[in-house]
Simulated assay, not measured.
Amino acid sequence: MSLLSPACRDALQHWLASQSALNGAAENTLTAYRGDVGEFLSFMTLHFGSPQGLGALQDITISDMRAWMAESRNSGTGARSLARKLSAVKSFYRWLAEREGFEPSAVLMARAPKFQKKLPRPLAAEAAKAVLDTVELQSQSDWVAARDVAVVTLLYGCGLRISEALRLQGKDAPIAAVLRITGKGGKERIVPVINAARGAVDRYLSLCPHSLDHNGPLFRGVRGGALNPRLIQGVMAKARAQLGLPATATPHALRHSFATHLLEAGGDLRAIQELLGHASLSTTQAYTAVNTAHLMEIYNRTHPKA
């Protein structure tokens, strides 16, 4: 970032502020954007031999873009990561072009490298149920065991991200039939809560030794502070080891399992999108690919002509 001209630094900072204010970008997203676009602008400084003002950025050609992408690949950046970086750069350039009044076509025409999109890795329904049962066995303390079961049941039963479950507060208890969840980018959604999840949280509440403040965290650590997500990740790691499940059986895999099992049961893709809080239907459509892959596996294994 020290290679950048003051004008470039200011433009980058203003763009990041706009992403936060207008699009509700999360802090982690802003950090990634800052690194990706800052890296691109720094490369252009070295590429042209001097710090570039905003005027020079308007003259970047498709050849310059290819040089940056080639250097990124040569330095070990994978195709998926480079596609992410290019997306951030294009977003910055759309904003900059509108603000400065120039045509950003050379940057926007740059094509991201092709890569094989990773499909979600859900658990089978039987495995997901076994995980819930096994998580309870990982602690000698009844209230800690009940807490861990309550969290993972919310992940699988409601499709919550672990960060969303751990952001629940004392005022959310007892858990109602529906929860208002604030997800990525500040996007709110309404999530129905199955009876098993409500029951698991009620049991935790009845055993928890800590007083739960109205605006304090619902799920507490042993010393009374907010529960660290790494503890739930660790509990899941122990459970999957005991069950012989793969390393992909993480807390987030329970969210994937929630979506996949709803789809397999005939759930509507648009409804599942709303339940998961996906901004784009294309994100949710990955689960149709999972379902198709599962069906083809059964077909190839059982069809007499296979």
Results as ranks from 00 to 15, higher is better:
residue 112 A to C: 03
residue 133 D to A: 15
residue 127 A to V: 03
residue 111 R to C: 00
residue 120 P to R: 01
residue 116 Q to P: 00
residue 120 P to F: 00
residue 116 Q to F: 01
residue 123 L to C: 02
residue 122 P to Q: 05
residue 118 K to C: 07
residue 144 V to S: 01
residue 113 P to K: 04
residue 116 Q to L: 01
residue 146 A to M: 06
residue 131 V to M: 13
residue 126 E to T: 11
residue 140 Q to E: 13
residue 131 V to T: 07
residue 135 V to W: 09
residue 122 P to K: 07
residue 145 A to K: 01
residue 121 R to S: 08
residue 131 V to L: 12
residue 124 A to L: 15
residue 116 Q to R: 03
residue 119 L to G: 04
residue 138 Q to S: 15
residue 130 A to Q: 10
residue 114 K to R: 14
residue 131 V to Y: 05
residue 114 K to F: 01
residue 141 S to K: 11
residue 113 P to E: 04
residue 142 D to W: 04
residue 127 A to H: 10
residue 113 P to A: 05
residue 130 A to R: 09
residue 146 A to S: 13
residue 139 S to G: 10
residue 143 W to D: 08
residue 120 P to M: 02
residue 147 R to E: 11
residue 127 A to S: 11
residue 121 R to A: 11
residue 137 L to E: 13
residue 135 V to A: 14
residue 144 V to H: 00
residue 133 D to P: 08
residue 124 A to V: 13
residue 126 E to Q: 12
residue 137 L to G: 11
residue 126 E to G: 06
residue 129 K to F: 09
residue 135 V to N: 10
residue 117 K to G: 05
residue 140 Q to M: 09
residue 143 W to A: 07
residue 114 K to D: 03
residue 138 Q to F: 10
residue 146 A to R: 02
residue 122 P to T: 08
residue 133 D to T: 13
residue 119 L to Y: 03
residue 121 R to K: 15
residue 136 E to W: 14
residue 125 A to P: 01
residue 140 Q to L: 13
residue 140 Q to W: 13
residue 113 P to N: 04
residue 132 L to F: 02
residue 144 V to K: 00
residue 142 D to Q: 09
residue 130 A to H: 08
residue 120 P to L: 03
residue 131 V to D: 04
residue 114 K to W: 01
residue 114 K to M: 03
residue 136 E to M: 14
residue 144 V to G: 00
residue 128 A to R: 05
residue 136 E to N: 12
residue 139 S to D: 13
residue 125 A to W: 02
residue 130 A to C: 09
residue 135 V to P: 05
residue 133 D to S: 14
residue 113 P to S: 06
residue 135 V to F: 10
residue 148 D to T: 13
residue 119 L to R: 04
residue 143 W to Y: 09
residue 130 A to M: 10
residue 138 Q to M: 14
residue 127 A to D: 11
residue 129 K to E: 15
residue 133 D to C: 09
residue 114 K to Y: 00
residue 117 K to M: 06
residue 126 E to S: 13
residue 139 S to I: 08
residue 120 P to C: 05
residue 115 F to C: 00
residue 124 A to N: 14
residue 125 A to Q: 05
residue 112 A to K: 02
residue 146 A to Y: 02
residue 148 D to P: 13
residue 119 L to E: 07
residue 114 K to P: 00
residue 132 L to A: 09
residue 119 L to M: 11
residue 147 R to M: 14
residue 128 A to P: 05
residue 116 Q to N: 03
residue 129 K to I: 10
residue 133 D to R: 14
